[in-house]
Amino acid sequence: MRLIDSARIHCPYCDVSLNINVDPSEPEQDYTEDCQVCCRPMVLSVQFDDRHHPRVYARRESDIFSPGD
Rank of each mutant, 00 (worst) to 15 (best):
M1A: 15
M1N: 15
R2G: 12
R2I: 14
R2W: 11
I4H: 11
I4V: 15
D5H: 08
S6M: 02
S6P: 03
S6K: 13
R8C: 09
R8L: 13
I9L: 07
H10Y: 14
H10D: 06
H10Q: 11
C11M: 05
C11W: 08
C11D: 07
C11R: 01
C11Q: 05
P12C: 08
Y13W: 05
Y13C: 01
C14Y: 01
C14L: 11
D15Y: 01
V16S: 13
S17Q: 13
L18P: 08
L18N: 03
L18R: 03
L18C: 02
L18W: 02
N19I: 15
N19D: 15
I20D: 07
I20C: 04
I20F: 08
N21R: 03
V22G: 04
V22N: 10
D23R: 06
D23F: 04
D23I: 04
S25V: 08
S25P: 05
E26T: 12
P27L: 12
P27E: 05
P27D: 15
E28G: 04
E28A: 14
Q29P: 09
Q29Y: 06
Q29M: 15
D30K: 14
Y31K: 05
Y31L: 04
T32R: 12
T32K: 07
T32F: 01
E33M: 10
D34V: 00
D34Y: 13
C35G: 04
C35Q: 08
C35D: 04
C35P: 05
Q36Y: 08
V37Q: 07
V37C: 00
C38N: 11
C38I: 09
C38D: 10
C39W: 10
M42Y: 05
M42T: 02
V43C: 08
L44V: 05
S45P: 07
V46C: 10
Q47S: 13
Q47T: 14
F48D: 06
F48M: 03
D50N: 09
R51I: 10
H52Y: 13
P54D: 00
P54A: 08
P54V: 08
R55I: 14
R55C: 11
V56L: 07
V56C: 04
Y57H: 13
A58D: 03
A58I: 07
R60M: 10
R60E: 12
S62C: 06
D63M: 02
I64E: 11
I64Q: 08
F65I: 09
F65Q: 11
P67Q: 07
P67G: 02
G68Q: 03
G68L: 03
D69A: 13
D69I: 11
D69S: 13
D69K: 10
D69F: 04
